[in-house]
Design a protein around this nucleic acid. Sequence first.
DNA 1: CGCGAAACTGGCCGGGTGGCCAGGATATGG
DNA 2: CCATATCCTGGCCACCCGGCCAGTTTCGCG
Lengths: 123, 123
Amino acid sequence: MSEDKTAAIVLSLEIDDPALADRLAALLGNVAGLRLAAPGEQAAATIVARDPRVSPADIALTQRELDVLALMAEGASNKMIARQLGISVHTVKFHVGSLLDKLDATGRTDAVAHAARRGVIEL
Amino acid sequence: MSEDKTAAIVLSLEIDDPALADRLAALLGNVAGLRLAAPGEQAAATIVARDPRVSPADIALTQRELDVLALMAEGASNKMIARQLGISVHTVKFHVGSLLDKLDATGRTDAVAHAARRGVIEL
DNA sequence: CGCGAAACTGGCCGGGTGGCCAGGATATGG
DNA sequence: CCATATCCTGGCCACCCGGCCAGTTTCGCG
């Protein structure tokens, strides 16, 4: 067999900072039992380090807007959101309108997608 | 200073498989220049390995449904999707209906959220 | 105290959405 | 050759959504 009991664990890298990527690659390259994935190769695990300067753009959403957004992401209709939060459908629409504005979205689906992309909510 | 020029890179682990987590932790613990994050500590990078048995549940979506789904995730209306794909609005609704069915969703927003959660699409 | 921001409510309405029905075109296989 | 499955299209219709108008209350800040 080509496999021994210490078969190398294959790691892939997804690192925005080139310097950090280099340091890690250099360090990990010398570790027995580990090896970095070839391009396109399926890895057992991935080392992720996203550039923090890319994401800190959190939008200024009010608490109520976050409430509405969370329920929207669950697929709730305005009516359901209203019931859930104990407010009227009109008020829900009001908040949804604000969300569409702040998130630069054309509709509730777009709003949820944008919010997820920006890390405002977690799917 | 407590920092030398070979300051350790802090890594955190998010690994579903306990065995793999142990092996990696053991291997990485002996590498100079690296160290694992303490609980709650902010890491420079994260090693991610999601249990493949949790996610391979890719739904059987047809090519057309994937087309429609992608455009839905962009916030496109049925009319826009129809124009984009060169098909009728009725057909778009037909595919949307199939998507709601297959994705267990109650509406297009829910469908996009579910699809994103299951990795069918990337936001 | 006055003022703005945030939250809440109402009515109205055009257009979008989703469910239902039925039908046609194209492949795949018995 | 006919049966079946998949994809595509149409009409119809109740309901939802988003945008518009206007109005009240509550809160914190200058």
